[in-house]
């Protein structure tokens, strides 16, 4: 197995995101995530800069790297032209690829995100599509959404959208050819491999947690339920 430092370096984005950090703290000061979480992009950059396997391994298995909202405010401000947001992207990828993500609560949620946003993207061509936010799986959306969801044809029509239909307009149906292209891009750019990696490592985690069916196979419904109810540790 390659050293994680090498795995990070293999991602071309690291070159763009990482120049050299002088610990000024501007990124942390401007970062919206740092305002809400125990989260400090500066120290993430410093850890990656150190090239220390142990420290980086720790990041890959931590909640921290999943707290970034990818707003890229840090990119516009860093006096050394680093971009913590991009560095975090690379860490996330290596965490997904190596399976380190299942060791933290926020990391484990990659499975949920993949099954929702990832699946939506490939199926509809949208990260979030009204038809995908169904009522059973999204009680958090409340009674107003329940009503919108049930009457979505009419509601979206009233709003001037073109929900799920051919032709132009908001929320229009994405042409089959375009969806096929998207799938090819996903495949060629390594998305499928990461998808499989998240799937495999999540299944193993389910087994480790004893969330299995009568044959001892991982039960992903139980696992999903487990993830949805997992207690935040921070």
């Amino acid at each position: 197995m390659k050293m994680v430092v090498q795995q990070l370096a293999d991602d071309v984005r690291l070159k763009e995101g990482m120049n050299a950090c002088m610990n000024c703290g501007i990124c942390t000061a401007v970062c919206p995530a740092a305002e809400y979480f125990e989260y400090d992009p500066r120290s993430i950059v410093v850890a990656v800069q150190s090239g220390n396997e142990e420290k980086i391994q720790q990041l890959l298995t931590s909640d921290t790297i999943w707290m970034c909202g990818q707003c890229m405010s840090c990119k516009t401000r860093c006096p050394r032209s680093n971009c913590p947001g991009i560095i975090i992207n690379v860490l996330r990828k290596v965490s997904q690829a190596t399976g380190a993500f299942v060791q933290s609560r926020l990391g484990r949620q990659q499975y949920l995100i993949m099954k929702t946003i990832g699946a939506n993207l490939l199926r509809y061509g949208y990260c979030i599509h009204p038809s995908a936010v169904d009522i059973q799986n999204h009680p958090e959306q409340g009674p107003v959404w329940e009503w919108v969801y049930s009457n979505r044809e009419e509601v979206y029509e009233r709003l001037g959208a073109n929900l799920d239909r051919e032709g132009p307009g908001a929320m229009r149906k994405i042409a089959t050819n375009d969806l096929l292209e998207l799938a090819v891009i996903f495949e060629q750019s390594g998305g499928t491999v990461l998808w499989q990696s998240i799937e495999t490592h999540s299944k193993n985690k389910a087994i480790e947690l004893g969330l299995v069916d009568s044959q001892g196979n991982p039960c992903m419904d139980l696992y999903t339920n487990y993830l949805l109810n997992e207690d935040p540790e921070f």
Binding site: N23, C24, G25, I26, T28, A29, V30, R42, R77, P79
Partner: peptide, 20 residues
């Protein structure tokens, strides 16, 4: 290092930095 400054209604200022 100072990240940004904004102005309050009374024209005093708010600073954002990190105490590193």
């Amino acid at each position: 290092r100072l990240s940004e400054v904004s102005e309050n209604q009374d024209q005093s200022l708010q600073l954002k930095a990190e105490d590193t």
